[in-house]
Structures are given as structure tokens and as C-alpha cells.
Design a protein around this nucleic acid. Sequence first.
DNA 1: GCTATATTATTCATATATGAATAATATAGC
DNA 2: GCTATATTATTCATATATGAATAATATAGC
Lengths: 149, 149
Amino acid sequence: MNNIAAPIETEVPAPCTDHVMFLLIQVGNAMAQRLEQTLGVVGLSGPKFGALSHLVQVGQPLSLSECAARMTCVRSNITQLMDRLEADGLVRRVEDPNDRRAVRAVVTPLGRERHAAGVKQVETMKQELAKTLAGVDQGVLERVLSAIR
Amino acid sequence: MNNIAAPIETEVPAPCTDHVMFLLIQVGNAMAQRLEQTLGVVGLSGPKFGALSHLVQVGQPLSLSECAARMTCVRSNITQLMDRLEADGLVRRVEDPNDRRAVRAVVTPLGRERHAAGVKQVETMKQELAKTLAGVDQGVLERVLSAIR
DNA sequence: GCTATATTATTCATATATGAATAATATAGC
DNA sequence: GCTATATTATTCATATATGAATAATATAGC
């Protein structure tokens, strides 16, 4: 669902502040959806790509708790995501030698490949966005968005 | 999960275009999350509030298909959402007299009340956002966002 | 060294979303 | 008027998210 909450359309010409909030949500969703779509081409979803990105970036096995912290989500979420990634053969779970409670996630070679493919897809999408944003001062936009986040 | 896809943090000083895409997604999610939270105070979720808003705005029963179209989502989604809204007593399903396949959603008095409470909550949140956005030309921001959507 | 407390990952219940398959009903085209 | 096709809502399987409860293990504080 794109409209998490639909604005009650008023008859006022341009009630600015009103719409900005919903616009931000809508645009965020639209971008996320487009990303999902592009990643789908190489068999990845947004969350799957996100998890792989973190693991590849760090360059070493991460405990599931660390993953959750990096991805700003709850641990049970990661448990499920890793189940799916493992089923896809993109990640493996290994025991932590230092802490018997912990489980660490390792990217498999296939996972690395898939991640690289995902990066390429994202590149393409970024270029499209750049076109859409031609004429907009991206520095300004970035600063505004950072302030809101 | 906030980070649908985490950018691979490069060492480059400010790769602008790169980040804007992820920033848009992040900000959208952050806003949606904040909205969820505020609405939670009066016992509503984003989708629930959204559905009520459409029904209240239109002012007459909407078929579930019409709801789906307005909320830009798939019909099975609305079936489930209406189940929850009905369980909450905020909406009732009524038969369509003209089309025996169709089911229409009607807001209950309690639904109206709850929606009004939600609107108040959203008002508050909008004012907060307005403060954050002080000094930003909202007209410009709105135009940029509209272009992307 | 033991005990109380914290941390880890998992499981469960739930909410939200999608898309495919289905049964009931409407409608277009002859 | 009948038949082929379309439309309606639902159900099912699945992915994603949250938070509470749990069992296993670590650690702090005495």
C-alpha cells in the first residue's frame, strides 16, 4: 500500500506544509518500491540486498545482533531474514567461537556474486534518479533530508 | 527495518547523488514510523487511518475494490485491513444492492470519532515537522518531491 | 565461586504487503 | 438468450516488520 495515510484533500489551493509530510512518505515508498523492482531482476529484495551490503562492507562475519543494530531493526526480524538468505544459499550461519550464545552470518561466494549484481542494478537506478533530479541542487536536497531524518 | 538497503559507505567526501536515493527512502520510513507512533496514541495504525480517511472524505460507502484503487494497493490487502477495522468496530461491511459480487465499507460512528482523533494527532505532527522545516522553502521542496513521485 | 542480571537467538502472535488461485456474479458479443 | 470473458472479494502462500516470552549462556558484584 502506497498511501500509508491519505491526506484529506482540501479545496485550498496549496496548503504546502500539509502535503510535504505525506509527500515525503509517498516518495520514500515509491523509491523503495522501484528499488525492490530493480533488485528483483537479480533475485534480491531490498532487505536481502541491505543485509548482504552490510556483511560485504564489514568484510567479516557479523553476529545477528550486530546485523540488527546496523539495519536498525529488531532481532527477530534478522532471524527470519537470515533464514531466507540461508535458504537462498547467499549466507551461512556459523557458531561464534568466543560466545556460545552468538551466531554469526557469513556471505557465501554466491552471496557475493548476487550482491555485486545488486550493486549494478542500484547503479542504474541511481543514474535514472540523477536524470529526474537534473536542475535540482542535490546538495541542498541532501541537507534538507538529513535535517529531517 | 529502517535501512531497506544500506549504501556501501565509500570514502569519497560527498558523493551526493549516491546518497539522495537512500536518504529519500530513509526519510520516508522515518516519517511513516513517526506517524505510526502518533496514531498509535489513539489506537490507530497508518493503514487504518488511511482507510478511514478515504471513507470519511468520500462520505459514502466504498466498495473494497474502490478502496484498493484509492489506497494504491492490492485487493487482498484491503480484505485483511477491513477484517481488522471491522474487528475494531470502526467499519462495517454492507452488501451492495446493485452488484451482488461487491461489498461496501461503511464507517461506524466510532470509526468517525477515531478518525477525528487521528486527524488531531496528525495535526500535531505536522506542526513539529513545520518547525524542523523552518527556513526551508517548502514550495521548492514540494515541487522537487512531486517531480520524483 | 555463586547468584542476580544481562545478553543472545529463537519462537510465537500479530500487522502489513504482494500475487496466484478460486468461486460467485456481471456483462459483452453474438 | 447463451457463452465467453471480466470483475468481485476471498483464501492461501509468502515476505517483511514488530514485540513479548523463552532457553541458553555470559558477566557483574559480592
